[in-house]
C-alpha cells in the first residue's frame, strides 16, 4: 500500500514541478488572463494571434475555446469570457441578454471568409450554378432528388448533399443567404461539424455536392472542385471586392467593454488588428482593407 501511495505522490509532484518549470518566463511582460471562446471558423486566426502575442508576453495566459459562435455568446453574455469569436453578427436576443447582465460589447471586423460550394473532381457536367438553383436544391422540403431535377441535361443520378451542422456559423450564413431564412434547410443531407469530414464526403462521391469555408476548399483543391456562383469564381479577389455574392462574409470578434479596460486585453486586441493582415492570409482567410483595420484601431483608442 505504501509503495502505491509513494508512486502516486511522486507522479503528482512530478506533474506539478513540470508545470512550474514550463511557466517560468523571465522577460517583463503583461500578466493576467485573456479568455476567448466562440466560432471555430475564426479560431485559426485567433490562435495565430494568440501564439504571436504570447511570444512577446510569455507571462500572459491566453485561452481560446471553440464552442461555436452561438455557444461562445452564451458564455460571453454572462461575463465568462473577454472576447467572442463570431462568424456572424451578434443576434438581437444575444445582445439583449448581454444588456441584462450589464455587458457592453464592441464589434470588430477581422477578416473575410467565403463559403465554397463544391462538387467531386469527376463531376464534368457542372461548373457554374445560380443562387436560385442552390435554393432549389437546399431549401426545406426540396423536391430535388436527382441531378436532372435541377437542370434536365444533368445526369439522372441521386444528388448526395453534405453540409455543416446546426451549431456552425457557416450553416446559419448559408441558410440565410441561399434559402432566405436562417436555419431553414432540407433535412436529408449529411451534416458534420468537422469540415474535413465534408471534404472527404464530397471527394469520395462522384454525385456529391457540399458547402463549407473557402479555406477548406483551397487546402483540398486537388481533390474537389468549387463551383462558380452566378458566374463568379470564389477567389481571394472576388471575395475581397465583393463580387462573389452572396456567399462571402466578414468575420468578427466581440470584445466586452469592461475587459477592454484591462491593459492585457486592450493590448491583445490592438495586436490583433495590427497583425491580422499578415496572419489572416497565413491561416487561409482573406484580410480586410487596411482602412478597415484602422477603423477598428480607432474604436478601441
Amino acid at each position: 500500500m505504501s509503495n502505491l501511495k509513494r508512486l502516486f505522490l511522486i507522479s503528482l509532484v512530478a506533474v506539478f514541478a513540470l508545470s512550474m518549470v514550463a511557466c517560468s518566463g523571465k522577460k517583463a511582460s503583461l500578466t493576467g488572463n485573456i479568455k476567448v471562446d466562440g466560432s471555430s471558423t475564426v479560431y485559426p486566426i485567433t490562435q495565430a494571434i494568440a501564439e504571436e502575442f504570447k511570444k512577446a508576453n510569455p507571462d500572459l495566459n491566453i485561452a481560446v475555446g471553440t464552442s461555436g459562435t452561438g455557444g461562445g455568446f452564451k458564455k460571453f453574455v454572462v461575463g465568462e469570457t473577454d472576447i467572442n469569436d463570431a462568424s456572424r453578427k451578434v443576434k438581437d436576443e444575444e445582445a439583449a441578454k448581454a444588456k441584462e447582465n450589464n455587458i457592453e460589447m464592441l464589434e470588430l471586423e477581422v477578416a473575410y471568409d467565403g463559403i465554397a460550394v463544391v462538387v467531386n473532381k469527376d463531376n464534368t457536367w457542372v461548373s457554374d450554378i445560380t443562387v436560385e438553383e442552390l435554393k432549389k436544391i437546399w431549401e426545406p422540403n426540396s423536391t430535388v432528388k436527382l441531378w436532372s431535377d435541377v437542370r434536365p441535361e444533368w445526369p439522372k443520378e441521386p444528388i448526395k448533399l453534405y453540409g455543416p451542422g446546426t451549431d456552425s456559423g457557416t450553416f446559419d450564413y448559408f441558410t440565410e443567404k441561399v434559402n432566405g431564412k436562417e436555419k431553414a434547410i432540407r433535412t436529408d443531407f449529411t451534416a458534420s461539424e468537422d469540415d474535413n469530414v465534408l471534404v472527404q464526403g464530397v471527394a469520395g462521391d462522384k454525385y456529391a455536392m457540399g458547402y463549407f469555408g473557402l479555406a477548406y476548399f483551397e487546402e483540398n483543391a486537388d481533390k474537389i472542385k468549387a463551383l462558380k456562383i452566378n458566374g463568379v469564381e470564389p477567389t481571394v479577389d472576388t471575395v475581397k471586392n465583393g463580387t462573389y455574392k452572396p456567399l462571402s462574409r466578414p468575420l468578427y470578434i466581440y470584445v466586452a467593454n469592461k475587459s477592454l479596460e484591462r491593459p492585457e486585453v486592450k493590448e491583445f486586441v490592438k495586436f490583433y488588428l495590427e497583425k491580422a493582415k499578415e496572419l489572416v492570409t497565413e491561416v487561409g482567410y482573406i484580410p480586410l482593407e487596411d482602412s478597415k483595420y484602422q477603423d477598428g484601431l480607432n474604436k478601441i483608442k
Binding site: C23, K54, T66
Partner: peptide, 28 residues
Amino acid sequence: TYVSFIPKTPLDQFTTLPIQIFNWSSMP
C-alpha cells in the same frame, strides 16, 4: 482548444489530449 499556459493549480483552465487531437483533425 488553445491554451497558452499550463495549469498550475487545480483551479486553472485546461485542455486535454483527446480535445487537442480532435481539434487538429478538423483544421483546414
